Amino acid sequence: NTCEECGKPIGCDCKDLSYKDRHWHEACFHCSQCRNSLVDKPFAAKEDQLLCTDCYSNEY
């Protein structure tokens, strides 16, 4: 699979995080606004962007 954020392949030695058929490296899986990691945290998706709950609450 190819990472949505950096565009590089996700190798066998990396954790592949996925959501709705989109894939990310663990280090690339972060909020589109504040850039905080979303690994093991709740998040929301809006208009193809992933947002942490704080940024989502502030926007919507």
Rank of each mutant, 00 (worst) to 15 (best):
T53Y: 03
E5P: 01
E26V: 07
N36K: 14
C14L: 12
E4K: 11
V39T: 11
C14I: 12
D16T: 08
S18L: 12
C31F: 02
E26A: 14
I10E: 02
A27D: 09
C55E: 09
C55R: 03
C12E: 13
E5R: 11
E5K: 08
K15I: 03
D13Q: 09
Y60M: 02
S32C: 11
R22D: 04
K15G: 06
N1T: 05
K20Q: 14
Q33K: 09
L38F: 08
D21M: 01
P42F: 06
G11M: 04
K41V: 10
T2K: 10
D16W: 05
R35P: 11
A44P: 06
C28I: 00
C14S: 15
I10T: 04
D16C: 11
I10R: 01
S37H: 08
A27Q: 14
D40K: 07
N36T: 12
H23E: 03
V39C: 07
S18N: 11
Q33F: 10
K20Y: 04
C3Y: 01
E47A: 13
C28E: 04
S18D: 12
D16M: 10
N36C: 09
H23C: 04
R22Y: 08
F43Q: 13
D21C: 00
F43G: 07
L50I: 03
L38A: 03
E26D: 13
H25Y: 00
Q33H: 07
T53F: 03
C34G: 01
D40M: 06
C28L: 00
P42R: 14
L50W: 07
S37L: 10
D48W: 10
T53A: 10
C14W: 07
C31R: 02
C31A: 03
Y19M: 03
R35H: 07
T2W: 02
D13R: 04
R35Q: 14
S57A: 11
P9D: 02
S32F: 10
F29I: 05
L51P: 05
C55L: 02
K15W: 00
L17G: 10
L51A: 07
N36A: 12
G11Q: 04
C6Y: 00
C3Q: 01
D13E: 12
K46V: 12
K20F: 05
C3V: 00
S37T: 07
Y19W: 05
I10P: 02
F29R: 03
Q33R: 12
L51K: 12
C52W: 00
E47Q: 06
S57K: 11
K20V: 06
T53Q: 14
E26P: 05
P42Y: 09
C6E: 00
K15A: 08
A44T: 15
C55M: 01
L50C: 06
C31M: 00
T53I: 03
H23D: 00
C28K: 02
E47R: 08
K20C: 07
R22H: 03
Y60V: 08
S32P: 09
C14G: 13
T53C: 08
A44R: 15
F29V: 06
H30L: 07
W24G: 05
C28W: 00
C3L: 00
K8Q: 13
N1R: 02
Y56M: 14
N1L: 09
D40G: 08
K8N: 01
D48F: 09
S57Y: 03
C3F: 01
Y56G: 15
D16G: 07
A45F: 10
K46H: 12
C12V: 12
C31E: 04
W24R: 05
W24E: 06
A44H: 01
R22L: 11
P9I: 02
C6H: 01
E47D: 14
E47T: 09
E26I: 02
D54K: 10
K8F: 10
Y60L: 00
C34M: 00
A44L: 05
T2V: 04
D13W: 04
K20I: 05
C12Y: 12
K15P: 08
A45W: 11
C6S: 01
L38W: 00
C55S: 04
K20P: 00
C6W: 00
K8T: 13
C12R: 13
F43N: 10
E5M: 12
C52H: 03
C14M: 15
D16V: 05
K41C: 14
H23N: 06
P42G: 15
P42T: 14
D54P: 10
E5L: 13
A45K: 11
K20E: 14
T2S: 08
S32M: 06
K15D: 05
D21H: 00
C3E: 01
R35D: 14
D48A: 10
A44K: 15
W24P: 04
P9H: 05
P42C: 11
C34T: 01
K8G: 07
K15R: 12
K41E: 10
S57E: 14
G11Y: 01
C28A: 02
G11K: 04
S18F: 07
D16N: 14
H30F: 13
C31P: 01
E59A: 15
A45R: 14
C52E: 03
C6T: 01
I10W: 00
D16F: 06
E26R: 06
C52Q: 05
C12N: 05
D48K: 08
E5Y: 14
S18E: 14
G7L: 14
C52V: 02
H23G: 01
D54N: 11
G7N: 02
P42I: 05
Y56K: 15
A27Y: 12
D40W: 02
G11W: 04
K15S: 06
T53P: 09
D54H: 08
T2P: 02
F43E: 12
C3S: 01
H23P: 00
V39L: 06
K8M: 07
G7Y: 15
S32A: 15
C6R: 00
C14V: 12
A45M: 13
T2Y: 01
S57R: 09
Q33I: 05
Y56R: 14
C3P: 00
E5G: 14
R22W: 09
L38R: 02
G7Q: 13
R35N: 07
A45V: 13
E47N: 12
A45C: 03
F29C: 05
C14Y: 13
G11F: 03
D54Q: 10
Q33P: 01
N58Q: 12
E47H: 09
D13C: 09
E5W: 08
W24T: 03
D13A: 11
G11I: 02
H30D: 06
N58M: 11
E4D: 15
E59F: 07
G7T: 14
T53K: 14
